[in-house]
Design a protein around this nucleic acid. Structure first.
Lengths: 107, 107
DNA sequence: TTATCATTTCCATGATTATCGAACCATGGA
DNA sequence: TCCATGGTTCGATAATCATGGAAATGATAA
């Protein structure tokens, strides 16, 4: 993974509200959660949450899908694995000590 | 791991120069590298590198040890594992899909 | 000791980020 | 259509961060 992208993903997670959102979505699984429910869970103004969701989406860590009037956000597990793989690269003498969570996670 | 600490560690890595330093130290192994050599490798002013090393150290991701006139910095693999564990928490239905790199890494 | 080298601290500057009110866009039901 | 609801974008503000020059600190050798 390109270093700029790695930095972008780490930066996306390096903020308390965004990290909380991401962890919430990891728990929510592939079904995800509607933006409104996330805002409610964190007690954030809609504009503020939207800003954070955009950061996470732009970093490729979460995906959005429209469903009726709602927009559901869900975690992208593959992206998280890429990130972890990058962090642990060259760590154990080059041996593959990853990935951690597959696409069937939470299935 | 506490969320504040997780954010702090992610923030420490979410900067191109610091991520490069950390990866350099991961490759360098427990022996680590002198601050001057790191600055040289990245082409940074001493003050700038010192600032970044302080961030990494304060986040607990790297350790410093004095050796003669030099200060050697090395990656803290346990801290990295904690970080990864936090990210993947509740990911695979609560099963332990970690840690990735043990303390004997690069030994 | 003094001179010197390695690194850090101090400080100022410019850049980036987080927040949220207000205005705007999109969808689905009367 | 028109309205209500769910989200986003815009714009302004305050806070935080990255950078490096200059001076201070700490450690060693002569």
């Amino acid at each position: 993974m390109e270093i700029k992208q790695t930095v972008q993903r780490l930066a996306a997670l390096a903020q308390e509200n965004r990290l909380t959102v991401f962890r919430l979505l990891v728990e929510a699984g592939p079904a995800g959660m509607a933006a409104g429910r996330i805002a409610e869970a964190l007690g954030l103004a809609p504009a503020t949450l939207s800003f954070h969701l955009k950061e996470l989406t732009h970093a490729g860590l979460v995906q959005a899908r429209q469903e009726g009037r709602f927009i559901f956000y869900s975690a992208d597990f593959a992206a998280m694995n890429d990130l972890i793989a990058t962090l642990t690269e060259n760590c154990c003498g080059g041996e593959p000590c990853l990935p951690v969570c597959g696409p069937n996670c939470k299935e």
